[in-house]
Amino acid sequence: MRLTVNGRVHELDPAPAVTLLELLRDRLSLTGTKLVCDRGECGACTVQLDGEIVYSCLTLAAACEGADVLTVEGLATDGKEPSLAPLQRAFIAKDAAQCGFCTPGQLIAANALLARNANPTDDEIRAGMSGNLCRCGTYPKILEAIRAVAAGEFELKPEARKPEAGAARGS
């Protein structure tokens, strides 16, 4: 079957029981998307499937034929020059990731939320994000980050479309 992941086309042959999450992590080595509850309760495995958010732990890979999948690794792709998406830059600036294990799912859920509703109210953000659990308690910062992106605070200006200048990088 053919599957497009983060803009790249793959020809794959998943076994019937393989989930989309297993396909992404084990077959395509896209380990940004995380397994936490394995039963659609926590949102850590959230990806966009043809634009809609799905729990990839509950989605059978074989049912995704011809689909277009977006994972956290695909958020930063901006044409040919890699650059962080406004949501990613907002998450950094607002300190919206502590341990970071839920962050890929939070980012994808937020991305889909803003695609549906470019100007969500705080209550709409809370409702839209309440399927994504975070144990470190970064919720206030995630809310701030999404709010800031919706307000256009992290729009890339055309001349700024290059890797973050001067941004500190640890590893």
């Binding site: 380990t31 940004g32 998307t33 950094i92 990731a97 941004a167 990088r169």
Partner: peptide
């Protein structure tokens, strides 16, 4: 800003899992 945040928001951060 948290210095390893870029790794955490791009999926590059490698956890034991």
């Amino acid at each position: 800003p948290r210095m390893d945040a870029p790794e955490r928001v791009t999926g590059r951060a490698r956890y034991t899992a």
